[in-house]
Amino acid sequence: MQQEVVLALLAKEPSHGYQLRARLRQALGPVGEAMNAGQVYVVLTRLEKAGLVTTESPAPATAKDTADRKTYALTAKGQHRVAEWLTEVSWPKPDLAEFHLKLVAAAAAGLADPLSIVDTQRRELLRRLREAQRAAMAEPDGSDAALLLEGIVLRLQADLRWLEACERSWTTRRSAP
């Protein structure tokens, strides 16, 4: 997970670690379920080391001194990094080239039938789509997580359509001399 996500969540106001985790869970919905509980704290520690956040411990009298009790806040450097991140236009890109080359190589070497590779991949993507779609159907309308799930579903759909194009293409290549 991107460190900047956690940084940005702190931009509104200083928060406890557990508050950050709750906010993430809410935004991600079922997608966030796989997230390790300690992941947020690992990231926070790393950010602290980089001088992007500072911590403030509560009054020592009541402190049992667990990580949970600390309040995290952005430093000036952290503020700057968040602003920078928001203007970035990076976009997660699926590595289609790898799969494409896998098909080409398999066909050239005669190691495997590209069509059966496509087929296996398709089943896998369909299974993922089924999961995402079921998760989406379980979400109430308008939740943050529903929007994320819709994005996942649409991407998987696009991937499946590309696989269909692969299948068509390799079918013609095979039938051609």
Partner: peptide, 21 residues
Amino acid sequence: VDETRLTGGTSGRLGALAELE
């Protein structure tokens, strides 16, 4: 040309779909 049975347990790895790991 093809038949796929999609029922069965879920992988429980939705997170992988969102590049969270």
